[in-house]
Design a protein around this nucleic acid. Structure first.
Lengths: 296, 296
DNA sequence: TTACGGTTTTTTATAAATAAAATACCTTTA
DNA sequence: TAAAGGTATTTTATTTATAAAAAACCGTAA
């Protein structure tokens, strides 16, 4: 069926949202301006305008485009129409692989997965190929894929690599008192303190904060290979949080305190302390991760 | 046109080659045995047998398969028929990107590349997506790819990552006197001494040896993420050797001596010396790589 | 009764088709 | 005359089609 018009639909929604600031009767600027504002081509911008005319939200006569009425929720496309099928399917696939708890060595068939997720095989193929970099699956040429498993070895190898990278990154961060990442560390301090003050139920917000913390550390090195690895790993770590629920809130509170120790040492320029605190945090993070391994 | 039968053709060639050890009149074993020996399915093995019958090389009657005559060169399929189109195209694409000397920021269009390399766009897309991990290109959604360029930044980031990994790997290598990679290091010593004894013309063989040396170091850590990165990088380094021809033979001889210093220190258990020698080699390798940067 | 061969079904690799979206080109109008 | 709109062309994203290759199934003979 070829392409669906997600870009168009997303642009319509985004245009409608931007009209909230305007009063009916306002003029809308040129097609090129609209295209630039929505980060789309002028072709799509024109399609959006045409659609808005059909909705009765806009009047369009030559180069005069007038807002007729404030947009209402019914004008918007539903969110599931807006998401790109590829991105939607990517999350579905990750869910499937990481939550099905397959034993190591399991066969993964493109065609079977395509049926289960109700997406074309070609897309499954693309997604698996992309996911391969995570180190969790491998291809048998002319045959199926194999799930290598979230094993003790995998977790160890991942932690080794991660510690190597993040230690190098934090060394760069503490070496430069003017480092551009420092303001974001200050912001992190506030967020950590705020979360620590809240009740146990709020601890569900920790995984996202943890991901941001490690990402900021990584980005301090300004190295594309660090970022690439960190991104891949964050997906795995994200799922790991859903496997190991034992002592969850206690662990999370402890981790927040460990983060804070690192952040405060970094911000106050105590380099050695920061390194020591960070090493300590990496050690507990490794223990936590290994505790969530089900296989081997 | 769908799939071509490369697997079949490669299997025929491989079967013919294995017949060199047999005398005419010899019996050939079961279909399953043949399939296992050639690492193909029984289906393809049967097709191979049928083809060999047509060639008059084999007689096949029920479960009796007899070699009629020694295979001759004409029986074999030409090498270009045997290579997988995807692998062929992958090398073509790498050649194109890394030898065209595009300025950083250049647009790369899937369709244009498909025309130039005479392969379907879908394949170009796959290959570019795969090559993305090298950090040299990036995708603009709904638009073209951008060549980020083999710049000073790129080379620096690559070296930073490489040194991090290889230092960690060699530390593991020297920490264990029974390390399984040590025999391969001994083999490496022989190869390096042999190459050093030969004339300048033989120095063209150094890049391949260099790649093997660094690969063995990497593999000593037994970490899939290390290997993955090392593999990606080896492709880039391979091309870099073709850009920087100045003082080539002198540089290569010096590098061989540096390798030897590392290898000997490792083999004789002088850990500190090995680390120092390796650091020294990494420093010159970095200098060499940066000297071949044409942009920025 | 089990290993083997014949046959059918499933799955993968590749190519081609199609609509969306971007870009380029040309015309118009303020 | 320059910026905007209209139109045509190119390129990308996605689906579908097809043959090769693998795997499963089943009957048969040593």
């Amino acid at each position: 069926m070829s392409r669906q018009n997600q870009t168009f639909k997303a642009a319509v929604n985004s245009a409608l949202a931007s009209f909230g600031a305007l009063a009916p009767g306002a003029e809308l600027g040129s097609e090129a301006e609209l295209a630039a504002k929505l980060s789309i081509s002028r072709t799509t911008a024109r399609n959006v305008l045409a659609h808005l005319v059909q909705l009765g939200v806009v009047e369009w006569e030559g180069r005069r485009k007038t807002l007729l009425r404030a947009p209402c929720p019914e004008d918007r496309f539903p969110p599931e129409d807006v998401a790109l099928p590829a991105e939607l399917a990517e999350r579905q696939l990750q869910e499937w692989i990481l939550r099905t708890d397959l034993p190591p060595g399991s066969q993964i068939h493109e065609s079977e997965l395509a049926r289960q997720l109700d997406i074309p095989v070609a897309l499954v193929r693309d997604l698996l190929q992309n996911f391969r970099v995570s180190g969790l699956i491998e291809k048998n040429p002319n045959k199926h894929w194999t799930f290598r498993g979230f094993t003790r070895e995998y977790a160890t190898e991942m932690c080794d690599m991660r510690e190597l990278i993040e230690r190098a990154a934090i060394r760069q961060l503490i070496a430069d008192p003017e480092h551009p990442s420092l303001p974001r560390m200050a912001e992190m301090e506030r967020l950590h303190i705020a979360l620590l003050a809240r009740d146990d139920a709020a601890m569900t917000e920790f995984p996202a904060l943890d991901a941001r913390f490690h990402r900021i550390i990584c980005q301090a090195a300004d190295n594309r290979f660090f970022d690439e690895f960190a991104h891949r790993i964050s997906i795995i770590v994200h799922y790991h949080y859903q496997w190991n629920k034992r002592d969850e809130t206690a662990r999370n509170r402890a981790a927040i305190r460990e983060h804070l120790a690192v952040i405060r040492a970094v911000l106050s320029g105590r380099g050695e302390d920061a390194l020591a605190a960070f090493d300590h945090h990496l050690a507990t993070a490794r223990t936590t991760l290994l505790a969530s391994v089900n296989w081997g």
